[in-house]
Amino acid sequence: MKRGTILRKTLVYSFLALYAIFTLLPIYWVFVTSVKPSAEVESFPPTLLPHSFSLEHYEFVFLKTRVVRGIVNSLIVTVAVTAISLVSASLAGYALARFRFPGKNALTAAILGLYLIPPVVNVIPLFLLLRTLRLLNTLWALILAYQALVLPLLTFLLRNYFESIPRELEESALVDGCTRLGALWRVTLPLSIPGLATAAIFAFIFSWNEFIFALLFLFSDELKTFQLTLMEFVKLYRIDWGALTAAMVIGMAPVLFFLAVAQRYLIAGLLGGAIKR
């Protein structure tokens, strides 16, 4: 019995360790490449551990490329997407959580239905729509288009969060003479800060990571988002792997940071969108 447990534990742990290695290897390979000096990046056979350490690629990426500009553009888009989606999703989420009104179920189903439409399906008409609105090649194109990616998820996320906050707190505020909106603003929202923060992080990650819409809707170099600037390191004749991997590490950093600080909420949120109806 005891022997079996030990054997089982060994098996379990070694499987976890193996899968962790599988998960981390590509990231390790990217990171290691980014800190190798140029000569070592494309030396054959490649060094599994870097022989010498160098920050030259990071220096190059920050000083000599459009990456910084791309980060600024991405932040502009991200902040705008987050602000707009957070406001509209929290209002709607609140309505769905607290009110009973005719058409509620139909609207819920419709939002879920829209969530199930893959974004790729809308690429062509969105392009034509933005062209008609003369918004192509502006960051507004992305700020609008990204709403499609984040709104349904955020709405369900926030609805679920509001539902978890006891109604009674709000009701006592109403008794004290607060309006509905006043109660939302003074009672429910302050209590929902973790939920709102999770939603904001989601909006950030989605807009930070997206690149197909950006590739198709932006033309000017000055408007390129961070992800698009990564593509500049891929040339017809060769890929500048040293610089590219350094830029990739920069791109992973904020996402990994959010994962580290808010993993519990993020994981719950990731599931919330899919499980809850």
């Binding site: 981390l24 990739m248 791109g251």
Partner: peptide
């Protein structure tokens, strides 16, 4: 650790 790939960008 296991969640990391799920939240990285497609390009990366």
């Amino acid at each position: 650790i296991f969640v990391i790939p799920w939240i990285l960008s497609a390009l990366i």
